[in-house]
């Protein structure tokens, strides 16, 4: 009898507990949703504001004429689009081989090398820590470093080359880390399959591991492209700001982000700054969409159900 009551009581208590858990769940759910909505709303508000201010000045003429300089901010933005493109290409061309190479070393070779020598183990550890730290360093620090080393000491001046070298230093940690992750996700069974056929480690890395890691590596590169397009401070002190189109890599130039900054801070053409910013935002959005599509299609092609 008393046993029964006890069990009934216990059941009731269980139910109450369940109910309380449910309320907590629902509350948590709503909270998470709210946070999500607020975050998205803020982003849309900013983008909406910039576009509403900027889209008015955008037309074919704005896109295809050169900036005219001066405090009135006359002219369009054509040269800044091309300069941005140059900057992105040159930076990626410098940073990708270095970054991917470093990642390959860290993932595929550093382990064995570290076991063989204490010094190598220490250096590898230092390199890993260095990459971690560099990833968190503000871009202006890279800018100052680039200014001191490339612009002044190596006498490369304010130029595409100085800017790309500094930009490469800025994105290297990202490329190294995303490539490392991509290499880590390549199954060990691929490596074993290749090695068991008598393929050398080198052959295995370049013909099996690296191709399988390409989607991840490409994602890291595209992320870095976004970073180069968006950064301002670092290029302010390395690229200079000339609104002429650079003819060689030794010329100064002005990226779109830099153009926005200079229009906003040095001219009265706030609407043109917003116009340029709108183009910038649209490019960044397209870039992010392309990451999704690109990595999905690369992965699909690998799995073979394209």
């Amino acid at each position: 009898m008393s046993n029964q009551t006890e069990s009934i009581l216990a059941q009731a208590k269980n139910k109450r507990n369940l109910k309380r858990q449910n309320t907590v769940q629902v509350f948590g759910y709503i909270l998470v949703w709210l946070c999500g909505i607020i975050a998205v709303a803020v982003v849309f508000w900013i983008i909406g504001y910039v576009l509403s201010q900027g889209l008015g000045v955008i037309n074919l003429e704005f896109l295809t004429t050169k900036p005219a300089g001066g405090v009135s901010g006359e002219g369009g933005m054509s040269t800044t689009i091309v300069t941005t493109l140059y900057l992105v290409i040159l930076t990626i061309v410098i940073a990708t081989p270095l970054g991917v190479g470093a990642a390959i070393y860290l993932v595929e070779y550093a382990g064995d090398a570290s076991r063989e020598s204490k010094l190598v183990a220490f250096l590898v550890k230092a390199a890993r820590t260095g990459v971690e730290i560099l990833a968190g360093v503000p871009s202006i620090i890279f800018g100052l470093f680039g200014f001191a080393l490339f612009v002044s000491y190596l006498k490369l001046g304010f130029s595409l080359l100085s800017a790309s070298l500094s930009g490469a230093a800025l994105i290297l940690p990202t490329i190294i880390r995303t490539s490392e992750e991509a290499l880590h996700t390549v199954p060990r069974s691929y490596r074993e399959g290749s090695l068991s056929l008598g393929a050398t480690k080198w052959h295995t890395v370049f013909n099996v591991v690296l191709p399988s890691a390409i989607p991840g590596i490409v994602t890291g590169i595209v992320l870095s492209v976004g970073r180069i397009i968006a950064e301002t401070a670092i290029f302010w002190v390395t690229l200079g700001g000339s609104y002429y189109l650079p003819k060689t890599i030794m010329n100064s130039g002005r990226s779109m982000a830099l153009h926005v900054y200079m229009l906003a801070s040095e001219t009265r053409a706030f609407d043109k700054a917003m116009g340029t910013a709108s183009i910038l935002i649209i490019i960044i959005i397209l870039l992010n969409l392309s990451i999704n599509i690109l990595s999905r299609s690369l992965t699909a092609r690998m799995i073979g159900n394209e």
Binding site: Y190, E192, G193, S194, S196, L197, G198, A199, S212, G304
Partner: peptide, 25 residues
Amino acid sequence: GMIFQRPNPFPKSIFENVAFGPKAH
């Protein structure tokens, strides 16, 4: 040669899989 517990073909074409060893050599 070695055959593993889980089939581990490379994410390449059928042809490339079989040709992998000879190519490596």
